[in-house]
Structures are given as structure tokens and as C-alpha cells.
Design a protein around this nucleic acid. Structure first.
Lengths: 207, 207, 207, 207
DNA sequence: AATGAATGAGTGTTCATTCAT
DNA sequence: TATGAATGAACACTCATTCAT
């Protein structure tokens, strides 16, 4: 009782350590999985790089798969920042948005680590919605303001688009959709947003 | 005498079956490894897709690694054809060549399946020399004829360049070379061929 | 019909080749199995050393096991010759016989290759009877003539003793019989032959 | 404070279990490998006999080979005890030592399990030094005291002799050294220790 | 009869995951 | 909660044996 103050402090420490461990694990997993691929990365190697015991990982992630998905989320964030950088000089938000979608679609169908996780489609789509949403939704809104798109609910658009991207990636990987058609898929997704297909077709690759 | 004809036919059958099996195995391995990555692909799955017994694979390839390298060779050929297609409208052979090198370097440092095999550097370099050589050497010669390059021995140039590409990829993956510097590496390789660095720098990414 | 003469000659050649192959195979198997043990020896290695195809071995021996037993027979013969040599200066045939049995028992319980084949007890006992019989039976007869043994049927004695040796070896290997008791087993076997146990006990190890 | 006692107890339990498992594994491996040979013994069978899971073995031994070497060390110890027993009535320490070396050399060149591990020469020599050293060095010292040998450093002598024994065994197995020459090898080793070759030649086999 | 390619059962080994401490 | 030893399922690879030629 008298120690409650201390306990709070202790909990704070515990919570801090938990966060630190979780971040260290994701960071370690990012490093190892990016270098060797998900399969070749071993949980023990990741644990050691994160400086925790082998069993500790499972206090933070239910399985290797869950950890891989956490890593993928980080990769999504990094991808968003990279897109941000590459489009920093582009004024037209519609273009930025189109470029972003094309980039994500490209990553999802070419990067093995993404591909291997696509079977968890709902989880991936949700991660996409959460981690790239802040950027994508901002661009949609700007494009709407600029009269390039026409939608009352940017959030909903991005939520649907997230799922559509995952679905498209799955189709492409399954070979049901030629890689060459990718570009058109991007366009169709954009069309949902009300921009003319022709214009989109002309813009997207121009970046 | 009459049996000699039969023998030829018999040998033909055996040889034909061996070729068919080998091709079926490479094809199956291509499919599975491209989809799941080298590690996640199992030899049994590949064997079944190729319609041979589990042990038969080892009559054709000493190890999973050797099979993966055979697959990589196929990927090199496919990449050459793809580059061919993407540069079909480009007249300047020097540009085509530069684009090709940039593309290969990109694949070698981004495609996980390539990356995981780079430790077999000499083998990879040799495969690169053999499988992409016909295209690369042709381009070098054309560029020489057009006065863009200056070298008496296109074959030797490509042989050296093959090793240089692998070495550069290794350095990049090891983090000793920033990914951003890749482009400059391409240029340096081209410089071996006598074309001015400035011009190359301007051309390569323009395609 | 008119070719019967030729056929005989042909068969002769064929038979000769068969014998040559069989001997080459046993010889090769002896070499390899003695060096590496039965398990570590591969049928392919043996075939190559005998200069025949991999499948050919099975035209001469039903299985690796059968080949190993043929090898064991050779080892038995060699052992007999070796005993012969080591006892060349011993006059007392009973001593020679006792030494021989002790030597065989020792080999059967210490040499891994023998031990591993003991489970084929009947076959081994028969081989022992056939391959060491000429020597053993001769010694028994000599010992009878010298009044050291008393039996009307040396052949039968050796036949029974062969089985007894195998049985004793099995028991010793199974741990049901201490290795220290081996000597006494030898004696009991000898007792079957009518020689006084005491005398035998005194003689056997003295060589 | 009160937990420190518990901790000690806990560590003790873990450590105890680890020791028990290790010993159980070696014991099980001894049994199975002695009976069937190293190759025919399967890791699963050993694990089951030791009452642990299949994978657990690899927490204690890096490979089947390492386990086999641990077994060989036990066999060395047993051999030392056996030599001890067989020479219990011999007073001359030099004779005991000579007999011991001859016995080891014999085992190393006749016992298949030893032979198959000789390629790990350095490891085997080291094991020989450690496991038979206490006995051998004691005999050397006694022999020195009795004026039979003359060396200031028995430990060093045994260390060198260990390597020499392994080297001799390798040569004998390779056929570079006739088995008949073994005895002389023993003598030469003994000569390193200062005892006259003639005397040694007369003593060693006399036991 | 001889060959050597095909086969698949069996083995050593790895590693994600669990669990006692 | 953190740890690391224990576990067993899964996989690469070997090799005795079969069989088409």
C-alpha cells in the first residue's frame, strides 16, 4: 500500500522495458529478415540481436508470422516516407497518390517478404490502412480540394483501396493477372476515386 | 547392324527423357522458388511438380543450392529478354547496355533470391557471363561501331563486367556501398569501356 | 545345333566372366567393408571398385546383406589360414583346435562386422561349417588319432560346434554371458568332444 | 535473501538434470554404438534409450560425430581400467606402460569404431591424453623412480606419445605401415622415454 | 546379362514453439 | 516476466533396390 507510489514507478519501468524490448525485437527482425528473408531468419538470431532470451520473443509476438507482419508494418511506414521523399517536388496530390499506389503495388508483387505474407490478406490490408493511411488520406483530401478527385470520405476510400491493393497483388502473384496489367489496375483503383481514367493513365507513370 | 539403328533410338530416348526431366525440374523450381523464395520451397514440392520421385532431383542437381543456381540462370535469361523488350525502341546501343547493367544490378541487390545466392560469387558471375553475354556483347559491339564505346574485345569486357557486377552487388548488400551509389558504380563499369562518365551518367537513368 | 560347340565356348566365356565378376565383387566388398564397416560401405563404391555397373551387383547377390555374408565367408577362410600360421609349430592338434575356437569366438564377439551379421545365425553357422571345416575337422581327426579326443564323427562334431559358437557369440553380445566367461564356453564346447575339461582349460590359453 | 537459497537449489536442479541427460546420452550412445557400430546407430534410437526427445541430443552434442567422440572417450577410460586389471599383478611399471600402449594401438587399428574416428586425429589425441593420462603418467613416473625410464617431464612425454599413437594408427590403417611393424612402433615410442629398445622389445609382448 | 536412372524409405539436423523454473 | 532447455515436426540428402533399355 505504502509502496503504491513505488509500484507505479515500477510499472512505468516495466512498461518502458516492454516497449523497449518490443521495438528492439521489431528492429532486429527487420534487419535479419530484410537481409536473409523471412524463412532464413531464425527466431534465435533475432532474439540475440535484440538481446533477449529465446523464449522472450513469444511474450511479445504470438508467432514468427506475427513478428514478420510487425516487420512488414515497419516496411510500410518506411515505404511511405520514401514515397514522400521521391514526390517532394510534385505539386499535384493526385499524381503523388497515384505514384504511391503504384509503388506499393510494385513492392507487394516483387518483394518476396511481402509476397510471402499476402496470404494474411485481411491483416495486411489493415496494416496498409493504418500505416500508410495518414499519407494517403492526406493526399486524397488535397486532391479533392484541388478538384482532382471527388469523394466525401477520403478515409473510406483509402480503407477500400487498401483491400483492393492486397486483392490485386494476390491476383497478380497467382498469375491470374499479367504483371503488365498492373498499371491498369492502379488506374481502376483510382477511378473508384472519381478521377477520369484517361487522365490517370497519363499521369501515373509520368512521375 | 539392324540394332545400331535401334541403339541410336534407345540412346535418344534416354537422353530425351533426361533432358525433359532436367527442364521440368528447372521449370518447377522456377515456379516454386519465385513464388515462395528459395528457403520456403521444398525439394519434395519441386519434385512432385516436375512429376519425378523425391530422390531423382539429386540425379540432376547435387544440392538444393545447385538447383537454385540453375533457376537463377533462367531468371538471367528472362531478365535479358525483358530488357530486350523494354529497350526495343531505343537506338543507341550504349544506352541499351547501360540500362541493362542498371537493371541487373538492381535485381541482384533487391531480389532476395539473387541476394541469397551471391555468396557463390564466381558461379554467379560465370552464369551472368554466359546467359546475358549474347545480348550484352552484341550491344557493346554495336556501341563500338557507333563510336560510343572503344574496345577491341567486347567478350573480355563483358567477362570482366560480369564479375564487377557481382562484386558491386556484394559490396552494396554488405552495406559497404550505399544503395545511392549504385548508379555511380554503373557508370564506373561503363567507363571501363571508354565512354565518358558524364555522358553515361546522363543517359543511363533516362531510359 | 551346329553351333553347339561354339555355344559351349560362349557359355564358357560367360561362366568365366560371371566367376570373375563375382570374385571381383567379393574382393571389392572385402576391401571397402573392412576399411569402413558394412554400413558405411556403399553398394555403388563396391561396384565401382569391382568395375561393374551399380545394378550388376544384384545379378550376383540378392542384397547388401548377402554380399556382406559372402565377405564374412572370405574372412573366415582368412582367419583359418591365419590360425594355421600361428599354430604351425604346435604339434598337439587338440591345442590347435582349441586355439582356433578361441580365436573364432574372439573375432565373432569383437569384430563389429561379424557381430552385425550374427543375427543371421543359421547362415553364419553354415558358413563357419563350410569354410573352416576343412581345417577344424582335420584337427579333430588328428586329435582323435593322438588319443586326445574321442569321437567317431568329426564332421558332425564340427557341424554342432559351428552352431554352438554362433550361439555363444550371440549370448555374449546380448550380455547374457560375461566376456570373462568366454574361455569357459570354449572349454564346454571342447567337452562335447570328450576331452577332459581340466586339461582343456589348461591348454587353450597357453598357446 | 530467502530466495538466494532457492536460487541455488534451482540452479542445482537444472545443472543436475543437464548432467544427468548428458550422461544418459553418452551411456545410451555407448550401448547402441558398441552393439551396432557408429553408422548403424541412429540418433533417434539413442535419444529414446536416453529418454529424451530427438532434438534434445543436439543441445548436448553438435553432431553425431561429436557424440561418437564422447563415446570414444568413455571407451578410452574403460580400456584404461581394463589394462589396470590385466596388469594388476605386474610390478614393473615399464612393462605395464608398454602393455598399455600396445593395447591402445591394437584397439585403434582393429576396433572399427576407433578407426572411423581417427580422421579427427587432434581431437582423439587430446582425448587420449586426458582420459588415459592419469594412468599412463603414473606408470611413467613409477618407471622413472625404478630407474627404468629417464625423463624429467612425464606429462609431456605422455602428451607427445598420445599424438604419436594416433599418428601410428593412421599410418597403419592407411597401409603405409604393415600391421607387423606395430610392435616396433611401440618400441620406438618407448625409446623416446629413454628405455633401451632391446629391453623394451623383450618385455612388451611378454605380458 | 549389364547398365545406370528412378525411386522412396530412412536419417541427421534445424528450428519454431512450449514450458518448467 | 524472462529465460533457455526440451520437444518433435519438417526437410535436405543418401543409398539400397528396382526396372526399363
Amino acid at each position: 500500500m505504502s509502496s503504491s507510489g513505488t509500484e507505479i514507478e515500477v510499472e512505468g519501468r516495466v512498461a518502458r522495458r516492454r516497449r523497449r524490448n518490443r521495438e528492439a525485437l521489431i528492429s532486429a527482425a527487420c534487419t535479419v529478415m530484410a537481409e536473409k528473408g523471412i524463412d532464413a531468419a531464425t527466431m534465435l538470431e533475432i532474439a540475440q540481436l535484440a538481446d533477449v532470451g529465446a523464449g522472450t520473443v513469444y511474450n511479445y509476438f504470438k508467432s514468427k508470422d506475427e513478428l514478420a507482419i510487425a516487420v512488414l508494418e515497419e516496411m510500410m511506414h518506411d515505404l511511405a516516407l520514401q514515397i514522400e521523399k521521391q514526390t517532394s517536388s510534385v505539386d499535384d496530390a493526385a499524381r503523388v497518390y497515384a505514384f504511391g499506389i503504384a509503388t506499393v503495388l510494385n513492392e507487394a508483387t516483387n518483394n518476396l517478404n511481402w509476397k510471402q505474407l499476402l496470404y494474411r490478406s485481411e491483416v495486411i490490408a489493415d496494416a496498409l490502412y493504418r500505416r500508410m493511411g495518414p499519407f494517403a488520406i492526406r493526399d486524397i483530401r488535397r486532391a479533392v480540394e484541388a478538384g482532382r478527385f471527388n469523394t466525401p470520405d477520403a478515409d473510406l476510400v483509402w480503407r477500400l483501396t487498401s483491400h483492393a491493393i492486397v486483392g490485386a497483388s494476390l491476383s497478380i502473384n497467382a498469375g491470374q493477372l499479367a504483371g503488365d496489367v498492373k498499371r491498369e489496375i492502379v488506374i481502376r483503383l483510382l477511378c473508384m476515386n472519381g478521377m477520369g481514367a484517361d487522365e490517370a493513365l497519363a499521369l501515373a507513370p509520368a512521375i
